[in-house]
Simulated scan of single mutants.
Amino acid sequence: MRSARRRITCAQVNEMDLVVYLETLGYKPQKIKGCNYWYLSPLRIEQTASFKINQQLNQWYDFGIGKGGGVIDFAMLYFNCSVKALLHSFEGTGLITPIEKSFIPPPESRIEITATEPLYLFPLISYLDKRGIDLNLAATYCQQVRYTINGKIFFGIGFKNNSGGFEIRNVFFKCSSSPKDIKLFRNGYATLSVFEGFLDFLSFLKLFDGTVAAQTDYLILNSLSFFEKHLDFMKTYSKVFLYLDNDKAGKSATDIALKTGPAFISYSGIYHAYKDLNDLLIGCPLPTMQSPSDEQGKT
């Protein structure tokens, strides 16, 4: 019998060490004086550290905005969420693992990438692990990105597209920076595998890398809105293998392609009981997987 979810209280959350908590978010103090830890504010952009944590009191104060408090107060401001949503994000381990949600900034907002570097932050690596993707594989195709929205600083896993924009994922948000575009990997093959998002692409490599199924060029759409726009490009390949989502939008795009010509082949049946390849990766053991095709040929 499945055990009931453990309820987390505000008091329990506020017992978390703020210094340790900020470290898990990727923030390190600029200076330490006794029990006072000084940071560049995680809540806005600044050049001089004016965000202080008193570790003895386990309280923070941002002198730039005149606000402070405990862990709950900080997390609500940082993630722009309610107390209820924050408490629901806690699992039985006591670690914050909020439910991922798509994040669309207000029209006046702009996602700005301020730095890129190799993946190393524990929350991002932990997120990948929960999605079944190991760090070595992710590091080959992704970067750790530091980005701002309305002056607030965030960190995420960044997947760079053909135009220099990024698809960004972390445990809280799914978002993207401009310009939005596809990502194409030309590997010299006459066949093409098509995926909706980069997590599906990485899941495919995790499942089939080293097999004949992986011997194709790769097209990651990053948005189904690019699918029909690139149909003519896909037709330049002798065969096109579709790994689109098993939802209404994914099935609709698949139907359009299959009606276009015999070059298009859908392999969504491999994960018919799952929404996408990543759900398959998480839900099924690798030994049960089979290679989708041995017909691809290299030019």
Score class of each variant (00 low, 15 high):
Leu128Ser: 02
Thr254Arg: 04
Gln12Ile: 12
Leu57Ile: 13
Gly210Glu: 01
Cys284Arg: 08
Phe226Pro: 10
Glu23Leu: 12
Asn150Ser: 15
Val212Glu: 05
Lys67Cys: 09
Glu117Ile: 09
Leu25Arg: 15
Lys130Met: 02
Ala115Ile: 09
Asp129Met: 01
Ser266Leu: 11
Gln290Val: 15
Leu137Gly: 03
Cys142Ala: 15
Ile256Gly: 00
Pro285Ala: 09
Gly132Cys: 03
Gly197His: 01
Ile270Gly: 00
Ser178Gln: 11
Tyr127Met: 00
Val20Trp: 08
Asp247Tyr: 04
Thr97Lys: 14
Ile270Phe: 06
Ser102Phe: 06
Ala190Lys: 09
Phe63His: 10
Asp181Ile: 08
Tyr271Lys: 03
Ser89Trp: 09
Asp245Arg: 07
Ser82Glu: 11
Ile65Asn: 08
Gly250Phe: 01
Glu108Arg: 08
Lys251Pro: 00
Ala11Gln: 11
Leu135Ser: 00
Thr114Phe: 06
Glu117Thr: 13
Ser82Trp: 06
Ile72Val: 15
Tyr271Thr: 03
Glu228Arg: 11
Thr9Pro: 05
Tyr267Trp: 13
Glu23Cys: 10
Leu40Arg: 05
Gly283Leu: 07
Leu137Trp: 01
Ser102Ile: 07
Ala4Cys: 10
Gly164Ala: 07
Leu128Met: 06
Leu205Arg: 01
Glu15Asn: 14
Tyr39Cys: 09
Gln143Gly: 00
Cys10Trp: 00
Gly26Asn: 07
Leu286Val: 12
Leu57Gln: 15
Arg7Met: 13
Phe79Ser: 07
Tyr267Leu: 15
Glu91Thr: 14
Thr93Cys: 07
Tyr120Cys: 13
Asp276Gln: 07
Arg44Asp: 08
Ile125Pro: 00
Tyr243Leu: 15
Pro262Tyr: 10
Thr236Leu: 14
Val145Ile: 01
Ala263Gly: 00
Thr48Lys: 09
Gln296Phe: 13
Thr191Cys: 13
Pro106His: 11
Gly70Ala: 14
Lys52Phe: 05
Asn136Ile: 08
Leu77Phe: 02
Lys235Ser: 14
Leu119Ile: 03
Pro98Ala: 05
Leu286Ala: 12
Glu100Asn: 13
Phe155Ala: 01
Thr9Cys: 10
Ile32Arg: 10
Tyr120Thr: 10
Ser203Arg: 06
Pro105Arg: 08
Phe233Tyr: 11
Ile53Asp: 06
Leu184Phe: 14
Ile104Gln: 04
Gly250Met: 05
Ile32Gly: 01
Gly164Tyr: 07
Pro179Asp: 09
Thr114Arg: 10
Gln143Ala: 10
Asp129Gly: 06
Asp17Gln: 09
Gly261Arg: 05
Cys175Trp: 01
Ser225Asn: 12
Gly283Phe: 04
Leu192Ala: 07
Trp60Val: 00
Thr148Met: 08
Lys84Ala: 15
Ile133Pro: 02
Ala49His: 00
Gly68Asp: 05
Asn136Thr: 10
Leu121Pro: 04
Leu124Phe: 07
Arg169Cys: 03
Leu286Gly: 00
Ile182Gln: 02
Phe159Glu: 00
Leu202Lys: 03
Asp17Gly: 08
Phe122Leu: 12
Asn136Asp: 14
Leu119Met: 04
Pro42Gln: 08
Asp129Ser: 11
Asn54Met: 11
Gly165Lys: 03
Ser238Leu: 12
Phe103Met: 08
Asp17Tyr: 04
Leu43Ser: 11
Thr216Trp: 03
Gln30Lys: 09
Val19Met: 07
Gly283Trp: 07
Asn58Val: 12
Gly210Cys: 10
Asp255Asn: 11
Val240Trp: 02
